[in-house]
Nucleic acid binder design. Structure first.
Length: 426
DNA sequence: TCTGGGGTCCTAGGACCC
DNA sequence: TCTGGGGTCCTAGGACCC
């Protein structure tokens, strides 16, 4: 039997987006607060007080408006540049506690603590928690286990504990903890698997751990058996300390109000192309394929639904905004149908690879190539320096009628001097 | 009236080859 | 009447994550 002595901590920021807003707005401390998704559509982050009011994760805003009004819940639109900035600070702090760390999402990271003695694990974790809070103002929860899945499980429990730290490495009661975790709260078990497991009498993480491996292999896929193995303490998912470049890049938005005209869709697609192209250029990547999609609202059952997408292989891989826009608009024309109330449009760039590999293309004889690369660089520089959309192209238009709603933005920008709060000394 | 956005990985099945 | 079999590669769609 393989002996596993790795120790992995999962550090997760508590109500991350809400915590970020609180940093710049101490008056909302201890109050119910929620952050809404793009277009002020759904609740995507809640303070403890908001959770206690029964506001659920992912719930549409219009459904909780009543609770919001009656309880004076503070509302914020997303401010991703703020969250991204705070996230970087949190990660930088965490990095000090382990040379081997995997940034798993904007608000969580796996830390390899294998070099820490078992008896010091708890104290070390408290120190991490305390330091992050002191240096960034963000509260965290920490779960430690011998595999990633167990550290996730530990973190799930830690979130509910006052201490905010749970160590399953030294615990003699792992099974007791695991039987408290419902099967749908296990990392890697989603809606479909939950349905299947419950049908077969597997209701908790502990049940899944106990089930015979052959049964899982036969009845689910490798994902399922990996999760079960990890719950037993056999690592199947390794910690990935180096950051991989993305393989796809998607930019899509819902409209602030429904759109019917091809011209408006074209504007949106153009804007999305500009943003996506800028993103992959900053990563020094080029795309092989571009996909365009549009759809009406899937929730308005009474109205006819129409959704379509189509992709096109680019003749030459590129990250040139103008080329991408031209291709995308041609595809859009192809899938656009008159008479529908469109709710969302987007594009996906895929088959992303590093720029240099395909730089010299047999067919790219156009002398303009180098000039165009310079042009793109100039646009990117200006936009980084002077803010998004400083330089754009005419098709994208400046006044976008269809643009998203962001009614409750805190407008805090940690990268902008003008928006810094001012302190008056009297 | 009003329901997010951006990713990854797995798998089955088709195309193609010898 | 009989119409291979095994391998690889690619892709669309599904499931899952935060």
């Amino acid at each position: 039997m393989l002996y596993n002595n790795s120790k992995i901590a999962l550090v997760d920021c508590n109500s991350f987006y809400v915590s970020c807003e609180k940093l710049f707005n101490p008056s909302i401390n201890k109050k119910p607060v929620v952050v809404l998704s793009s277009n002020d559509g759904c609740v995507i982050s809640r303070s403890t007080e908001a959770k206690n009011l029964g506001i659920k994760m992912g719930e549409p805003y219009f459904k909780v408006k009543k609770i919001v009004k009656e309880n004076d819940v503070k509302i914020f639109s997303t401010n991703f540049s703020l969250y991204g900035d705070i996230s970087r600070r949190v990660m930088k702090t965490l990095k000090q506690f382990s040379p081997k760390m995997e940034i798993y999402s904007i608000d969580e990271a796996f830390l390899d603590l294998s070099s820490i003695k078992n008896e010091d694990l708890l104290e070390h974790s408290y120190k991490i928690k305390k330091t992050v809070l002191k240096w960034t103002g963000i509260p965290t929860s920490i779960g430690i286990g011998t595999t990633k899945t167990l550290s996730k499980a530990a973190n799930y429990i830690a979130k509910k504990e006052k201490s905010g730290v749970i160590d399953l490495v030294n615990s003699k009661e792992i099974d007791k903890f695991l039987s408290k975790i419902k099967i749908n709260d296990v990392w890697g078990v989603g809606k479909q698997l939950t349905k299947f497991y419950i049908k077969n009498g597997i209701n908790t993480a502990y049940d899944l751990k106990k089930i015979h491996n052959n049964w899982i292999k036969k009845n689910t896929n490798v994902f399922g058996s990996r999760t079960a193995m990890e719950l037993r303490g056999f690592p199947c998912v390794s910690l990935e300390p180096y950051e991989e470049k993305r393989k796809n890049c998607c930019v899509s938005r819902s409209f602030g109000k429904k759109v019917t005209r091809l011209e408006d869709l074209s504007e949106a697609i153009t804007t999305h192309c500009l943003n996506a192209a800028e993103k992959i250029r900053l990563d020094n990547q080029t795309a092989k394929k571009i996909t365009v999609f549009i759809r009406t609202s899937p929730f308005q059952i009474k109205k006819n639904y129409y959704g379509n997408s189509k992709d096109i292989d680019l003749p030459i891989r590129t990250n040139d905004s103008i080329v991408l826009i031209k291709q995308a608009l041609a595809v859009l024309k192809n899938i656009y149908k008159k008479g529908y109330q469109y709710q969302k449009a987007g594009i996906v760039l895929s088959g992303l690879k590093d720029f240099d590999i395909y730089n010299e293309n047999l067919f790219s004889t156009i002398n303009n190539d180098k000039k165009r690369i310079k042009l793109m660089q100039a646009i990117d520089c200006a936009n980084i320096k002077y803010g998004r959309n400083t330089l754009s192209i005419a098709q994208a238009r400046l006044k976008k009628k269809w643009n998203i709603k962001r009614q409750y933005s805190s407008k805090i920008d940690t990268a902008s001097f003008e928006l810094l709060p001012t302190v008056r000394v009297l």
